[in-house]
Computed example of a mutant assay.
Amino acid sequence: MSNSPVAVVTGASSGIGAATARQLSAAGYSVIVGARRVDRLLAIADEIGGQALPLDVTSDESVTQFVAQLDRVDVLVNNAGGAIGTDTIADAKPDEWQAMYSTNVLGTLRMTKALLPKLIESGAGTILLVSSTAGLGVYEGGGGYTAAKHGEHAMAGTLRLELSGQPVRVIEINPGMVKTEEFSLNRFHGDQAKADKVYAGVEKPLTADDVADAITWCITRPQHVNIDTMTIRPIAQASNYKVHRVLPPER
Rank of each mutant, 00 (worst) to 15 (best):
L116G: 06
N174G: 09
T86L: 08
S132Q: 06
N78A: 13
I171T: 12
I32F: 03
D209V: 13
A45I: 07
R40D: 04
D213R: 15
H150Y: 14
G137D: 15
T133S: 04
M230L: 15
D209W: 01
E172F: 05
V243K: 00
G137M: 11
N79M: 11
P117K: 14
T88E: 11
S164P: 07
V75L: 10
N240A: 14
E61L: 12
A35E: 07
R37Y: 11
Q237M: 00
S131M: 11
G201I: 03
I89P: 08
T86E: 12
V198H: 02
S30N: 02
L185Y: 11
Q192S: 13
S239T: 15
I173W: 05
K204T: 14
Q69L: 09
N226R: 03
V168R: 04
L129V: 08
G135A: 11
Y241D: 02
Q192Y: 05
E152T: 15
E182G: 01
G82H: 04
S132A: 10
A148D: 01
Q23G: 06
I232Q: 04
K179P: 04
A195L: 02
G34S: 06
Q51W: 01
T58W: 08
Q223F: 15
R245I: 05
D74L: 06
V38H: 02
I173H: 08
S13V: 12
A18D: 09
V73N: 02
Q23D: 12
L106W: 14
M230D: 02
E121S: 13
L70P: 01
R169L: 11
Y145N: 06
Y199D: 04
S25L: 00
N240M: 15
A26E: 14
G50F: 09
L247Q: 13
N3P: 00
A92D: 08
V9A: 11
M177A: 07
D87P: 03
L116Y: 12
S4V: 01
T58E: 12
G137P: 04
H153V: 05
G11N: 01
Y101C: 03
Y241L: 02
S30Y: 06
Y29P: 05
A147W: 07
V57E: 00
G34E: 01
L159K: 10
D95H: 13
P175R: 09
A236I: 03
K93T: 12
G34D: 00
G123P: 09
K204V: 07
R233T: 05
K179S: 02
A90L: 15
N3A: 10
N226T: 14
V225Q: 09
V63N: 05
T58K: 09
Y199I: 02
T216V: 08
F183T: 07
N78P: 03
K93A: 11
H150W: 14
G15R: 04
V9Y: 10
S30F: 03
V211W: 07
S131P: 05
D74R: 07
N3W: 09
T180N: 01
K118Q: 15
S184Q: 11
A80W: 06
M111H: 02
T64I: 05
N240S: 12
N240Y: 08
T86N: 13
P248W: 01
A68G: 12
D210G: 03
P205M: 03
G137R: 09
D210A: 07
T220P: 10
S132P: 04
W97R: 06
S25D: 06
D56K: 09
V33P: 05
